[in-house]
Design a protein around this nucleic acid. Sequence first.
DNA 1: ATGCTGACTATGT
DNA 2: TACATAGCCAGCA
Length: 118
Amino acid sequence: MYVSRWAGTAPESLHLRIHRLVSRIPRGRVATYGQVARLAGLLGQARLVGYALHALPAGTSVPWQRVVNAQGAISTPPGHDALQRRLLEGEGVRFDARGRIPLASFQWRPRRSPSRTL
DNA sequence: ATGCTGACTATGT
DNA sequence: TACATAGCCAGCA
């Protein structure tokens, strides 16, 4: 049996915190799943970020396309990967020959941890 | 209640 | 560089 480290936090708010944080990623920038997890106060829970984004309704205003994996590659399942790439390229994010985003150039670097001031 | 899955990541080979 | 494995935990059956 698991004992959540975030016991006391409603499940909805975990998703909400993730969604809200993803919404802060500026246009033309990307963040990794692990980065989002860390900024949302969920260190090490990169998978939870993916799960939370997967749960987003169609047509959401949350810029889910700005979240990529630690290699700067798209991790979305077949069907969504092409859409994600198209959306990102539309924002000015460029991909290298291997289909990966140079994180050194496009990764979002917030000045402060947003999770503290929520 | 129990067990498995997953839009991940760090580490080892 | 690429593939395999272990750790992680909220949903879901």
